[in-house]
């Protein structure tokens, strides 16, 4: 009603403020949505542009090659899952402590966890690798990057993605309902019960969000995998990168598109899974100032 009067009074029928997002919408349509459709298109085309399922077959059902690919995909899941679990196990108590005024009076400590991100992650990852190499060769007489490449990869991933796990958990912990926790303790729950029944259930959206923030990038960040294993082990991300950058036969970008589409589907499924949980996006809304 008020809106109608407003329109009449000012004599315009369109929503000025809403129209401000047109450049944004055009940009997103052109550079985010359209490219994804091109990927889908490419995934079902052969070298000459005809429709085919051959790209899928040569990736997943073609003898030796497909065995290697399935192996890499399986290993990627193992690496991503272990990284996610380790990150959450470390980030959860840290986030809990950081959100507690007693231990972290003025948010500064949180920023200190994020500050290393200002130094390029390639440099940080290589620094970590060199540090790990010299530490493990002194302590265990290992050459970790060549003898235990998977351990080395997971360490690198945890190192790089831990801040991404801490942040959403921290934001969730800030919203903890203290009276619920105190009530549980007053009613006779022991500390373990308080933790499991009063604290954890309140933080599930944060856990889900932290898991998403570590699991998804871990699957695709081939740079960390390359550096930490000295190019000896691959993850899905490295496969895709290889098809687009290194190989040059005429269907390699089509096969790469298939893999990208598979990644996209994994992303979609995890997004749906997250939506199934409480869809509160607040955890990700940055609030530096």
């Amino acid at each position: 009603m008020e809106e109608a009067i407003g329109r009449k009074k000012r004599g315009f029928a369109f929503n000025f403020r809403a129209s401000l997002c047109i450049p944004f919408g055009v940009f997103m349509a052109l550079f985010v949505v359209l490219p994804l459709f091109i990927i889908v298109y490419y995934a079902f085309r052969d070298g000459d542009g005809g429709f085919t399922f051959q790209n899928w077959a040569s990736l997943f059902a073609d003898g030796e090659n497909s065995k290697v690919n399935w192996g890499i995909i399986g290993m990627t899941f193992v690496i991503a899952a272990s990284t996610t679990i380790i990150c959450i196990l470390i980030a959860y108590p840290i986030a809990y402590l950081l959100a507690n005024k007693k231990y972290n009076k003025n948010k500064v400590l949180v920023y200190i966890f994020l500050l290393p991100m200002w130094i390029n992650f390639v440099i940080r990852t290589i620094g970590l690798k060199e540090l790990l190499n010299s530490l493990t060769s002194v302590l265990f007489d290992w050459d970790i990057t060549s003898e235990h490449p998977y351990i080395s990869i997971v360490i690198g991933m945890v190192y790089d993605y831990l801040p991404f796990a801490i942040l959403p958990l921290y934001n969730q912990m800030l919203k903890l309902d203290k009276s619920q926790i105190e009530a549980a303790a007053d009613l006779g729950a022991n500390p373990a019960q308080v933790f499991m029944k009063a604290i954890v259930p309140q933080t599930i959206p944060g856990i889900v969000s932290a898991a998403m923030m570590t699991f998804m990038p871990t699957m695709s960040s081939y740079v960390i995998a390359d550096k930490m294993s000295e190019n000896s082990k691959f993850i899905i991300g490295s496969l895709i990168q290889g098809y687009f950058i290194k190989r040059t036969d005429d269907v390699s970008s089509n096969i790469g598109s298939v893999l990208s589409l598979v990644m996209l589907m994994i992303v979609g499924v995890s997004m749906l899974a997250q939506k199934a949980f409480d869809k509160k996006t607040e955890e990700r809304k940055g609030n530096l100032w």
């Binding site: 997002c21 997103m28 985010v32 949505v33 359209l34 994804l36 990038p217 695709s220 081939y222």
Partner: peptide
């Protein structure tokens, strides 16, 4: 739908975003 599109580059694997831009620029 605009909110959904905004979420895509955040949630999507960076390699997929990169590859999709590569094919667009190839086009």
């Amino acid at each position: 739908s605009l909110n959904f599109v905004t979420q895509i580059p955040i949630v999507n694997a960076e390699i997929v975003t990169a590859v999709s831009l590569l094919v667009l620029f190839a086009f």
